[in-house]
């Protein structure tokens, strides 16, 4: 059997699909004094090399977080599916800005539609979703990081459990 490498060691195919399917994404970092920064992200995809996650967000909405990431590289990203409460948190220590490419933009478009359908189930209309994803072309920023730890955070008895990497 072929050894599993990179992200696939930490995230099962099911979890990998989950974080890219169009769920709610929030990103945290912290400053030198351990004060946390927080912003809402827009989409997520796995880098072509299969090692890193790429998180797209709005620069104008995330100034503190981007400043903190630049200094510390520390990142925590939580993914949740509003209709089911399924939740996963992924942490890393080497986050940094990368140049947004066409694949990031395509991923953002796909996520916008998928997330709109997801929250539509809960009664939020298309206009609400459009406002959530509204972004000037030069406002897009992408953070890339190598996942180090993954936590199952769906509310319930196993919430908070660390998901062990595959051997």
């Amino acid at each position: 059997m072929e050894a599993v490498s990179g992200i696939a060691r930490l995230l099962s195919p099911d979890n990998l699909a989950f974080i890219q399917k169009g769920v709610s994404i929030n990103v945290a970092s912290r400053d030198v004094r351990r004060v946390p920064s927080l912003t809402r992200a827009l989409s997520c995809r796995v880098d072509a090399d299969g090692q890193r996650l790429r998180i797209a967000l709005s620069r104008s909405q995330s100034s503190d977080l981007l400043r903190d990431i630049e200094k510390s590289g520390a990142i925590a990203v939580v993914f949740t599916e509003p209709s089911t409460h399924r939740t996963l948190q992924i942490k890393g220590a080497d986050a940094g800005e990368v140049t947004a490419d066409t694949a990031d933009r395509a991923c953002l478009e796909h996520t916008r539609a998928a997330f709109g359908a997801e929250i539509g189930k809960l009664g939020f209309d298309a206009a609400f979703n459009t406002r959530l994803f509204q972004l000037a072309p030069d406002d897009l920023v992408v953070l890339a990081f190598t996942p180090q730890t993954v936590f199952q955070q769906t509310p319930g008895p196993n919430a908070g459990a660390l998901l062990e990497p595959a051997p």
Binding site: N26, V27, A28, S29, R30, R34, V35, P36, S37, L38, R40, S72, A74, I75, A76, V77, V78, T80, T87, Q89, K91, Q153
Partner: peptide, 16 residues
């Protein structure tokens, strides 16, 4: 709501 915290060693955490 979303809440971000940070532990003493500097590892951030984010949860609902």
């Amino acid at each position: 709501g979303v809440i971000a915290t940070c532990d003493a060693s500097g590892v951030p955490n984010v949860s609902y």
